[in-house]
Design a protein around this nucleic acid. Structure first.
Lengths: 350, 350
DNA sequence: TGCAAAAATACAAACGTTTGCGCATATTTC
DNA sequence: GAAATATGCGCAAACGTTTGTATTTTTGCA
């Protein structure tokens, strides 16, 4: 079998040294590895004196616990997996930061995977995470993922699952979502109150709860204000900048004087179309976006938008994971976060 | 000792089942675990027939290799660690994506840590990654980290190290950086050619090579064009929006009519100050930023900026890691990427 | 001083893989 | 037809921990 390189006290200066193990420490002190292990774990079964001695020599030798071995033996890891569609979206990277802010202090580490909005990548990510024996998975599913089967497999194999933002409702485990319905309701109501008369909607893919909920909120606000719903000014699958630009033209043809958009990028397209065609926002036309992307406040006019507090969502998703580990029942772990309407120039009809 | 839950063929429907191991597969087929292991690894020492049989039943039983055990035995993992100051910065998240695009197909997984620009967090991250036995570390050090000691420890313990963007030059291992000097030179030269006469500089912390190089490039461009360097219009430690706003006032007092900024956020502050004070950009005042943040093109006026191709940088950093694994010498692995000047309205003097 | 109880440490198995070696059986070679 | 080679698989050790149990040492107390 292979030989082990034993820890050597710098016989050549600056030499690369094999990492010392608890066995090396044990050998150096003429004790057994089990005592070393217990000592480093702070177990009181080993005397304070040797505990001190051990941790000192461990530090001297530059010992670092091998988490592979440790986790293998213990049968559990302190790693949680996180799957997001894309890491380079303001929203998702902030959710990640938020989750990290809770999980790191709790002793967990994060391993991040991207699905790139593809179901296949998502499945691969789930497999990778399971193979790495993560303690749980926090995820927002890809847009391609329309059935919840692969997510169900996660909980079935005993892993903690927390869905966030985009969540299947028929799945056991925790979920943290925005209250998209109420948010969209408020945004639409704000447009009505501001005096816009014919308000359209740029929505997203209706296979996702996120977008159906927003559309429903939009419709309810209209209905509650006695405005008839006109399906011809509801444009689904329209959350990109291009689609926003394109559908703004259609909305204008249909006589709209305002749009509630399910995404800031779509709203950006709307503003750009208006700029190109000398349409005065907000006086002639009102726009509200969703997400509060970092550019929203920087546009001219600054974009009114529905904020989804990403960092907070990450916090709560992480907390939900910890709660599951503590044995809280799933029922208590379906969390809805209110959205906040940030009113800026793009909806201030003067 | 603890009992193992053996794999059970769904005695209750939908029951949570323990993950099957190669031992379970072996038992089911009345062969030994070693054969199973070899079969699943595609080893030709086991016959094609049994190989087929094994991989079929493995699939049936829902077997997934336990990477903890595998890596422990093999003495190496397929995980590489990545440390960035903040994940929710456009630049860093794109570098991560770029690295992932190379590493995933090569069979590696990424574990991401944030230093939050704090040296302590960075050290902790390094420790965590080492404990997790990563195959290498790709990182951009925190601004607080002014000596390269903790980075040196990485290579000393035999890990592959790739620095990107912010890199200590005295460290063995690979590095991928922007050609900040030439980039800044070009940006400044462009301002000169556009007819601006008194060009100042909003720089960053001079403890970082990134910012000293940019300042040197700026100075060289002035010198090459026969313009005297005036230290009073060089503002260091000024890469935030606030500082940009604040130092724009000072630059104006000092008679500047243009600024080359080491960051888009600083340039944003400059533009905002100009807007508040009715200063016409670009006619009265020229601005160039650095980074091409996503908002740069959306500002009014659109911001001329020096692009640092983050995705490409991630690609190359990952490739450098793979090269190290292949045994390429460090000398070949000091890579400089050219920057690209994207000319937009903010520097078009009319 | 002796003896039980308590404290400190040692022993050994186990986590799930991988892999060098050995041992059969099957195939080739002269 | 015997010797040499290939093929297919099993055995057992090892990776570095953790932990239940056993053993030794120390302590307290009569």
């Amino acid at each position: 079998m292979r030989k082990r390189l034993y820890f050597c006290t710098q016989n050549k200066k600056e030499q690369k040294m094999a990492r010392p193990t608890i066995n090396d420490i044990a050998k150096a002190l003429n004790i057994t590895p089990s005592t070393v292990s217990r000592a480093l774990a702070g177990n009181t079964r080993v005397s304070a004196a040797t505990r001190e001695l051990i941790s000192r020599t461990a530090a001297e030798m530059g010992y670092e616990r091998n988490l592979l071995a440790s986790s293998l033996r213990k049968g559990s890891t302190d790693t949680v997996g996180m799957i997001v569609p894309r890491i380079n979206r303001q929203f998702f990277s902030n959710v990640i930061s938020g989750a990290e802010a809770i999980l790191n202090p709790a002793g967990y580490n994060l391993i991040i995977c991207q699905s790139h909005e593809r179901q296949e990548d998502e499945k691969r990510a789930i497999m990778t995470l399971m193979r790495n024996q993560v303690a749980g998975i926090i995820m927002s599913h890809s847009l391609e993922t329309t059935d919840s089967k692969s997510l169900a497999d996660i909980t079935k194999s005993g892993l903690a699952l927390v869905q966030f933002d985009r969540a299947f409702r028929d799945i056991e485990g925790a979920s943290v979502t925005n209250d998209n319905f109420t948010g969209a309701y408020q945004a639409t109501a704000h447009l009505i109150k501001s005096g816009y008369k014919r308000i359209g909607h740029l929505g997203g893919d209706l296979l996702s709860n996120v977008y159906t909920d927003r559309m429903e909120g939009y419709k309810k606000a209209l209905a509650d204000n006695g405005i008839e719903i006109d399906e011809s000014i509801i444009f689904n699958d329209s959350i990109t900048r291009d689609k926003g630009f394109y559908n703004m033209a259609k909305a204008l043809q249909a006589g709209c004087d305002a749009l509630y958009c399910s995404g800031d990028y779509a709203a950006l397209g709307v503003i750009e179309y208006a700029r190109h065609n000398n349409i005065d926002i907000p006086n002639e036309f009102g726009v509200i976006g969703t997400a509060n992307e970092n550019f929203a406040e920087l546009l001219t006019p600054a974009l009114t938008t529905l904020e989804q507090n990403a960092f907070d969502m990450g916090n709560r998703a992480a907390q939900a994971f910890l709660d599951i580990k503590q044995g809280k029942s799933d029922a208590e772990l379906k969390i809805e976060i209110p959205m906040r309407l940030i009113v800026r120039d793009s909806s201030r009809k003067g």
